[in-house]
Design a protein around this nucleic acid. Structure first.
Lengths: 204, 204
DNA sequence: AGTGGGTCTGAAACTTGTTCTAGATTAGCG
DNA sequence: CGCTAATCTAGAACAAGTTTCAGACCCACT
């Protein structure tokens, strides 16, 4: 899992203040447009205009629409992680805590379904060129789930596998819900089902 | 599961012979281009040209690139279903049979990773307008898994949930592998992990 | 065989992601 | 301050998915 900075990513060149502000304006415009019309409504020209940045500059900060939306997701996940840290899940069993956490996150996304749609579509559509960024999102998600498990020691290989499976299910169930092919009830059932895997994996 | 025709779907207007041939040419060209360069290599103009059909006609048959690729996936899955029917998995436990089936399917896709990439990306990128077609793919996958389970009677709600979770994991793991963020070994482990859910669900 | 409606063709037009270019601005530095 | 390289801007240009349109063609029915 490499470096574990509290907030910023690699920080290759330390951005100036104005640059940081630009980056933030772009992400804000992206999230705002996404909240309205979802993936399709995030049009690069419009993002550039709304964040008062030239199109070329937008592309310098985020080399593609998918990069932009995945970065937006990083941003949102980070916030969610903070929120969850403040009010951690209360349930007894680890599996129940994970299920609770994921359903809570799910409800948060429900409030902005279009934004969720844009971010998830970008995430699953991303090709190899976006792997590093997608990986960051994945690590964030993993961290959220592991937090909810509150393991005494480091996770076993088996547990990590279970976490990956939970992550897969979480993403895929979300996509299915967003495209109207599954109800919220079904998502809940499936999340609870996959969380049972946690009970199967021990310290062994 | 509604109608269970042996091959064709709804068949709203019964296509003429020439039309059936056109459709087949289009799907063939699509799969061929996808096998080369993946999603991006499937260019509508080229598909049209290669299948000797006007662009407008291509769009009459498949209203978007995503529709086309999802239909391609239906086609491939159908073939895979046939193949699997001929040589069903041999393992003892239902969960092992499902894992074996999925890994066999996985290896088949490995042989044409670019094609798999194109189909999977289209599938997960599909929006609501493609829901019916995506649903068909989902039902096919479900059928394949249920076949492997060889249940004595009809599946319980719990079992269907487990199957959905397995499907989610299968898709998502595949995507992760295709984008180079997971090894084949990891996919195998995760598939086997999620298949354990089957052992947890009984007739209840 | 004749005819009417749906289908197919070829080509242009439109949309939106992405790239490119020339000139203005900015940041860091002597 | 004055220079230089990097960055930013405005806008054109390009690429590929999608739409549109006029005319040719095919099919079923009389």
């Amino acid at each position: 899992m490499g470096q574990m900075a509290t907030e910023p990513k690699p920080a290759s060149p330390p951005l100036t203040e104005r640059q940081e502000a630009r980056r933030r304006r772009i992400l804000h415009a992206s999230a705002q447009l996404a909240s309205r019309g979802g993936f399709d409504a995030v049009q690069m020209r419009e993002v550039a205009e709304n964040s008062q940045v030239a199109l070329g500059t937008l592309y310098r900060y985020f080399p593609s629409k998918v990069h932009l939306l995945v970065a937006t997701m990083q941003d949102q996940l980070q916030q969610m992680h903070e929120t969850l840290r403040k009010r951690p899940p209360a349930a007894e069993a680890p599996s129940a805590r994970v299920a609770e956490t994921l359903m809570r996150a799910f409800r948060a996304l429900q409030r902005e379904p279009q934004l969720a749609d844009a971010m998830l579509r970008a995430l699953t559509f991303a090709d190899r060129s976006v792997s590093p960024e997608v990986d960051t999102v994945s690590r964030l998600t993993t961290a959220i789930i592991l937090d909810a498990m509150r393991l005494p020691g480091p996770a076993t290989a088996e547990q990590l596998s279970a976490v990956r499976v939970i992550e897969h299910t979480w993403h895929s169930a979300l996509v299915t819900w967003l495209s109207g092919r599954a109800s919220i009830a079904q998502v809940k059932i499936d999340i609870e089902m996959v969380c049972r895997l946690i009970d199967l994996t021990g310290r062994a």
